[in-house]
């Protein structure tokens, strides 16, 4: 049965599964009560990844622009939904997240295509979009939660500024700056230390798959730059769209 399995690495996968079993045993031994979760997670990871492997093989083979766009839409929708749930307490949080991630990801991908860094083929766009959308989702969650917390925590100062004749934007500006900064800091920090502390996924994957390190590094540099850009676009969109939810057209602060 194993020889029919489409992976040539089946025996290595089974061997690596030993580590999962050890983790489950540790959990049982220390009464952490996670062994069921560990095993379920391992099986889910296997099934999901094999499924996506087949799906990508299919998508790459067809390589239809419409299919690529459809997949991008699905990715962005799932990311928007997930980030929207993190933005509880922000009015219309799902729409805000969807628009922020959609804007951030499309601008980043559009620029990469326009500058000729990548080609509009399934094999290039889909893995790249996965990274961009995932990263945008994290930035969006962080920014939405931060803007919400800042505006709630600083409502007295914001209303004091409004009462002095400030617009909503002027009254919230210092806190929006803090929020955007909080959203972008993780990616900037990891960009600073990339290669020093950790070898990032794309590069590790290429090297393990047999690529020369310098070849892998070229792609990784592009990825790091692209994620920085995506964080800026998404962060900016999320900051602005989230803040708008807390003010009326008459420059009034509305806390839900």
């Amino acid at each position: 049965m194993l020889e029919n399995f489409p992976l040539d690495q089946a025996s290595r996968i089974l061997a690596a599964f030993a580590l999962v079993l050890i983790a489950a045993l540790v959990s049982r031994w220390q009464q952490v009560d996670l062994e069921k979760d560990i095993l379920t997670a391992a099986v889910r990871a296997f099934v999901q990844l094999v499924a996506i492997g087949y799906a990508l093989t299919f998508v790459f083979a067809i390589d239809s622009p419409l299919l690529i766009l459809l997949i991008l839409t699905v990715m962005i929708s799932i990311a928007g939904y997930t980030a929207g749930k993190r933005g509880k307490g922000v009015p219309h949080s799902s729409q805000v997240a969807l628009m922020s991630i959609g804007l951030g990801a499309s601008l980043t991908l559009g620029l990469l295509l326009a500058l000729g860094v990548f080609e509009f083929t399934a094999a290039q766009i889909i893995p790249i979009a996965g990274m961009v959308v995932g990263n945008s989702m994290n930035v969006c969650s962080l920014v939405m939660a931060r803007v919400r917390d800042e505006i709630n925590g600083r409502s007295a100062e914001i209303e004091a500024a409004l009462a002095l004749g400030a617009t909503g934007r002027q009254s919230a500006q210092p806190y929006l700056r803090t929020s955007l900064r909080a959203g972008m800091t993780p990616i900037v920090d990891s960009t600073k230390t990339v290669g020093l502390i950790q070898l990032p996924g794309a590069m590790t994957g290429m090297i393990l798959a047999g690529a020369a390190p310098l070849e892998a590094v070229q792609l990784q540099i592009i990825v790091v730059y692209m994620l920085t850009g995506a964080a800026a676009f998404t962060g900016l969109a999320a900051t602005w769209l989230t803040y708008r939810q807390f003010f009326t057209g008459n420059e009034q602060l509305v806390l839900p």
Binding site: A156, E157, E159, A160, A163, L164, G165, A166, P174
Partner: peptide, 29 residues
């Protein structure tokens, strides 16, 4: 609305001063 608020000074229960100096707060409006 902004012109109206400038004509009506409001003082709240909490002073809600902005970070910075006294002069910066006074110069805000």
């Amino acid at each position: 609305v902004l012109a109206l608020r400038r004509r009506l000074g409001m003082v709240f229960q909490k002073p809600a001063l902005f970070p910075g100096s006294v002069a910066e707060n006074i110069a805000y409006g």
